[in-house]
Design a protein around this nucleic acid. Sequence first.
DNA 1: TCCAGGATGTCTACGTCGTATGCCTACAGC
DNA 2: GCTGTAGGCATACGACGTAGACATCCTGGA
Lengths: 231, 231
Amino acid sequence: MTTPPAAPAVEKRDSPAGGKLSRERVLACALEIIDREGIERMSMRRLARALGHDPMSLYRYAPNKAALLDGVAETVLSELMVDSDDPDWKAQLRSVARQFRGIALAHPHVVPLLVTRPLATPLALRPLGTLRPLEATLALLTRAGFSAPDALHVYRALFGLLHGHVLNELQELVDNPDETDDLLRLGLHRLPLGEFPLLRGLASTLLSYDGVAELERGLDILLAGLTTAPP
Amino acid sequence: MTTPPAAPAVEKRDSPAGGKLSRERVLACALEIIDREGIERMSMRRLARALGHDPMSLYRYAPNKAALLDGVAETVLSELMVDSDDPDWKAQLRSVARQFRGIALAHPHVVPLLVTRPLATPLALRPLGTLRPLEATLALLTRAGFSAPDALHVYRALFGLLHGHVLNELQELVDNPDETDDLLRLGLHRLPLGEFPLLRGLASTLLSYDGVAELERGLDILLAGLTTAPP
DNA sequence: TCCAGGATGTCTACGTCGTATGCCTACAGC
DNA sequence: GCTGTAGGCATACGACGTAGACATCCTGGA
């Protein structure tokens, strides 16, 4: 109603034109926001603003916010490449582990999504992208002689280790946002001296965390355990 | 506006009287809500309503919602008892692991908090309750002959394993909310047959997940690895 | 006895969030 | 041309976290 005589539709068609949307574009932009600002600053409204569109348009590409976040997790996880045909299954598992660590470090803010979103969805209803690494790992292991159930156990052990390790390592990262040498010591100093003698003494060790070495040692233990005491 | 002539202020002064507040009462009630309804239904307003008070009163007991949630995590984690004087350190680590699993299963909705909240806080600034198990474990291990840095590595390996395992096991629980036998098979049936042959074949295995056994096997591997290849 | 000052709880208000509903526009196939 | 459909937009609702200004009560010193 009330079509005004002049002052027509300038400035209307330019700023909102973030160009055509697509699920990929939406997910990529969401990932970018999460990487840059953290997960809780990623709101539908902010995402829409970043895309130059109305918030409501996002709902053409995901039924709700949770699903959209699942999509982001799926995108990130689908970078994981499992070669089911590798004859050296141990080496392949190590490769998967290193890739997973790399992905986690590249997108630290997504890790909570990676490890906890599955808690909200029954396995069989998860996005296919997140099930593919599972199937591929099962294939790898059955080809290496494991029974299917044993392969599942190994998969669980491996990803248990991975999730745990990555959570550990990211904690260290947060502890060391910059040259936190002094900061950390300062923080530790706050601890009651009588109650935390050991922790207070570990300042320098805490500062020199080596994620690669830590993961490799975990893998050594796991793979050794798998051969000496098969599942 | 429009004060009705009769029907005055009944029902106003009785329900809000939740009695005196206290940090313990607030945290306990928050935990109850989380256990019952899940973490995202736990809002400051709902918590206040459950306590029969104004939302703002909660801010006398925690500077903000994140801190309150940290408090809940701390409460839950402080149930963990580490006996630093146990001469059998392996047995003690196993006990810690079993306790942790028990706690996680008792409060599944809190687990995301337990494993991811630390990501947001530098170690030295974490609530003391969450650092106490760490210090106690370090004490246990140094008494058993480990150097302090080695003890830290063992601690990390153990809790990495625990976090990973617990996340794994809870996924299985979600998969089996009831006698999901049919439900799971149905879900798996949805998977493209060509692409997920192994996963589809594992329905029965997925249904008979044994968390205790799975954790014990993980511990076997870890402890074996620790003695054959010390850190 | 009274009064000052802290601890505790409440009310109101602001800006942000997720998303239901309904409308508009542009184009596809007939 | 007409109609159906997909994509996008405007408006609106209820819930959220929390800042700031009060109110109430308890305590201990004068």
